[in-house]
């Protein structure tokens, strides 16, 4: 199951060292590749989408904030991909 989204690499790279490495062209990825694939477990997909939203909007929707399991899932993903601003946000709510 593939989902394709368009996103600014600069914004992601600014929020996380993981994304910075991921998008660095002269790294493991081959030069001109425009598609970057991230593989996650189905259970983590929604959390990852919320994380990406957070990186853009700097906050999470109230429905998520209200749900402990959702919040925990996002925290896991944020920790995995090293997005300190989101980790801080989740733990300080």
């Amino acid at each position: 199951m593939m989902e394709c989204i368009h996103i600014s690499s600069v914004i992601l790279a600014g929020a996380s060292p993981f994304f910075q490495n991921l998008f660095s062209n002269d790294r493991l990825e081959t030069g001109e590749q425009k598609e970057t694939i991230i593989t996650v477990d189905v259970s983590q997909k929604d959390a990852l989408m919320e994380l990406l939203n957070f990186i853009y909007g700097k906050k999470l929707p109230p429905t998520i904030v209200a749900s402990i399991p959702s919040l925990f899932g996002i925290l896991m993903v944020a920790h995995k991909y090293d997005v300190p601003s989101c980790v801080r946000y989740c733990t300080c709510l």
Binding site: H6, S8, S9, V10, E35, D41, K45
Partner: peptide, 19 residues
């Protein structure tokens, strides 16, 4: 590299749980 160009960003769901 750091221009604001949009990338195709794919999120692929894992089909199987980690055994």
């Amino acid at each position: 590299m750091s221009t604001q160009k949009k990338r195709n960003f794919k999120i692929e769901a894992f089909k199987h749980r980690v055994e």
